[in-house]
Structures are given as structure tokens and as C-alpha cells.
Amino acid sequence: MIDAALQRFIELAATLGLHYDFLLSGTEVRSWLAGMGTTLLLVALAIPLSLAAGIAFAAALTSGRPWLALPVRAYVELTRNTPTLVQLMFAFFALNMLLSRALGGAAHNPFTPFFWVVAVTGLHVAAFHAEALRGGIEAVPAPLVEAAQATGFSSLEILRFVTLPLALRTALPALVNNLVNLVKLTTIGSAIAVGEVTYASIMIWTQRDNVLELMIGILLFFGLINLTVSRIGRLVERRLAVPGYGA
């Protein structure tokens, strides 16, 4: 049944000049699917990391404590204004190397290339989240914060129960945008041989010279992930919408 449909698709694509016969080769399909799986795993780990770190950074930026805000501000500016790929290279070739040496050789270093991709892309996008959330926190009217103070909330409780929930709502479109970028950023994992979908595709097309066919597949795959991310974003936006606040 599936085989027949596949056969039909390959024939149809062939009439357009596209050669999808590699889909009949079990090993190549398996490695391609494994690549997609790795990409999904990267995304699934990096998204929560970016959100958690973004919230922490935003809290530091708005804490009013210079010793906390300044280093985070420096990190945010550095991250936003340098290429993620260079950050990854630096993390993998410099930091990872130092770590290996400190731990007594690469064999003792538990940090894999996969880890570095999640960490670098997640923390990179966290800087963008932090800026969006900071804007949202600062947009909360000062009297509202004062009302919470007068009730006896500490500054951390005010952040958790009042300013952050409101900031999440105003920043949500920007956050979703950042997450779409995060999904796309995971492709740089191929630079350090993390077997995500781009890397898996390179492995296939060096054998078969079917770049265009694989490209269409990759673009559809990322289109689908990002469609899902934006859909979920809009769903959350609707769920969180409150009458009389924001747009």
C-alpha cells in the first residue's frame, strides 16, 4: 500500500525531472529519517532551554541590581551581535577543548557536539527572548507594580505573579518569532558533524547528486516544524488573552 504510493510518487516526480529513487533505498531513507529525528530532538531540547534562560536573563536585566544586570547585558549584546556559527565554533573548538583538558582528556569529557548545539542555539535565542521579555516587563504600568508592593509581595513574587505573566503576553509574538529562528539555527549542527537533517542530506547527496530533491524535502520539513511552532504560539496567545489588556 505505502510502497505502491511511494512508487507512484517517484514516477510522478520523475516526469517533473526530479529523482526521488533514493526513497527506495532502505539505508538512505533510514539515515534521512534519523536526521529528521535528530533535528526534532535538538528543537525539543533547545526550545525549553531558550525559554528558561530567556526568563532568567530578563529577570536579571530588570532586577535593578547592577552586578546582576551588567554581565547579562554584556552577554546579551555579545550574543545578538555575533554569528551563531562562530559562537558554536568557539564553544566547540575552544571551550570544549579547555573542558577536555581540565577533565583529563577528550575521553573523559561528557559534552558531545549534540550538547554544544543545544546549548549554543538555546542560549543564543535566549538573549533575544530576554530582550523581548524585558520590553514587556518594562511596559507593565508602574502603579500596578506599586499595588503589588503595597499588598506585601517581594520583588521576586511581583515578577512571578504580576510582571512576568503580563510580559509573556505582550512578548509572545516576538518569542514565537525567535523560536522559528531557533528551529532554523539547529542546522548549524552540521558544521560540527551533528547528524541532523542537513548533515544527513549532505551524506546522501554526495553519493547521489540529488541536491534539489533533498532540498525540497528539507524545506518542507522545516516549513512543517515552523508552521507547528507558529500554530502552537497562536494557540497559546488565544489561551492567554485577557479582556481589556494588550492588543
Binding site: L61, T62, G64, P66, A69, L70, P71, R73, A74, E77, R134, I137, E138, A139, V140, P141, A142, V145
Partner: peptide, 23 residues
């Protein structure tokens, strides 16, 4: 703009010496 904006914008200004120190 709320009063809370002030320390953060201050931080941006304060980031310059910090960056200069790093450089």
C-alpha cells in the same frame, strides 16, 4: 514609560565600560 525602565536603560549605558574592560 514606567519607572522600571530607568535602571535597565542605565545598564545599557553602564555596559560600555564593561565592554571596554573586556576588550
Amino acid at each position: 514609560m514606567s519607572a522600571a525602565a530607568l535602571p535597565a536603560r542605565g545598564a545599557l549605558r553602564w555596559a560600555w565600560p564593561w565592554l571596554a574592560a573586556a576588550c
